[in-house]
Amino acid sequence: MNLETMLTYLSLTVLALLPMMNPPAAATVLLGLSKGRDKAYMVTQAKTVGCYLFVALCITFFIGSSVLELFSISIPSLRLGGGIIIMAIGFNMLFPNSDSTSTTPSQDSIALVPLTIPSVCGPGTMALIISLAAELAMQGEELQTLSVYTGVVLGFAVVAAIAALTLSMAYPLLKLLGQNGIQAFTRIMGFLLICMGVQFFTLGITEISQEIHALLS
C-alpha cells in the first residue's frame, strides 16, 4: 500500500465532500426539528448521523451506480427527488403547524431522515460520489487500487466525524439564541432550504431537458 497515495485521496475526498455536504446547514435543521428536546437527545442524534453518514457514503460509493441502474434512476431524477424532499422540509420549517409547537415532542429519530438523507448526504453529494466511483473504475488498471480505495473510505470516516461534531454543537447554539432566536433562525433556514430544493429541482429539470434535446437533435 502506498501511504502517499492513500493520504492524497483521503484529503481530496474530504475537501470535495465538505463544501457539498455543508454540515452547519444540517445543524440548523437539527435545531429546528429538536424543539423541546434536551442536550442528550441532540448529541445522540448527532452521533447517529455520523454512523449513518459513513454507511451511506460507502454504499453510494461501492454500489450506488448499480442501485440507480437497477431501478433505472438517472442522476437528474435523483436531483429532482432530493429537491422535492428538501423543499418539503423547508416548508415545514418556514410554516410550522400547530403540532410542531406542542410541548410534548415526538420520540421519533430524525438522524436518518432528514438529517443524513437528504440534508447532509443529498443528491449533489451522491452524484459526486457516484461520478468519483465511475472514474476510478475506468482508471482501475492505472491506479494503486488498494491505496486509493482505502484513502477514499478513510476520507468518508473523517467527513462523518466532522459532521457529527458539527451537529453536536447545535445544543450550545440553542442555549445561546434561546427559543425565540431559534424560531426566527429556523424560519430563515427553512427559506434557504426551499431555495436549495428549488436549485436541485431546476438543475434536474435542466439536465433532463438537455438529454431530451440531445435525443431529438
Rank of each mutant, 00 (worst) to 15 (best):
L57V: 04
T166H: 00
S100P: 04
S74D: 08
L174F: 14
S77V: 08
S34K: 01
C51W: 06
R37D: 11
I89P: 01
S98F: 03
L31C: 10
A161H: 06
I205P: 00
L128S: 14
A56K: 00
S119C: 12
G124K: 09
I182W: 00
K39Q: 15
M126I: 10
G64R: 03
I117D: 05
I188Q: 04
S102F: 10
N180D: 13
A46V: 01
Q139P: 01
A16W: 03
S109W: 03
Q179P: 11
A56E: 00
S131D: 10
V120P: 01
Y9N: 09
L112W: 09
L176P: 00
G122R: 02
A164I: 00
V14P: 04
S74N: 10
T28S: 05
P123T: 05
L146H: 13
L177E: 10
K175Q: 14
V49A: 04
S209F: 07
E69A: 15
S131F: 02
L7Y: 07
L30F: 04
A157M: 15
L143F: 14
I182G: 00
A214H: 13
L17G: 09
Q139E: 13
A134R: 12
V55W: 00
S168V: 00
S131L: 03
S109R: 04
M126D: 06
Y41G: 05
I130T: 12
E69N: 14
V153Y: 04
S100G: 05
M1E: 08
G50H: 04
G124P: 04
P105K: 13
N97E: 08
L115C: 08
T125E: 03
Q199F: 05
N97D: 14
T103E: 13
M87E: 02
T202C: 12
K47V: 14
I85S: 09
G155E: 01
I129F: 01
T13R: 08
S109C: 06
G82F: 07
L146I: 15
I63C: 06
E69I: 09
P114F: 05
E135R: 11
G140H: 12
F91P: 00
I86M: 13
L215V: 13
V198R: 01
L215T: 13
G124E: 06
A27S: 14
A134Y: 09
C195T: 12
T5I: 12
A25E: 05
A16T: 14
P123D: 02
T104F: 08
L78E: 01
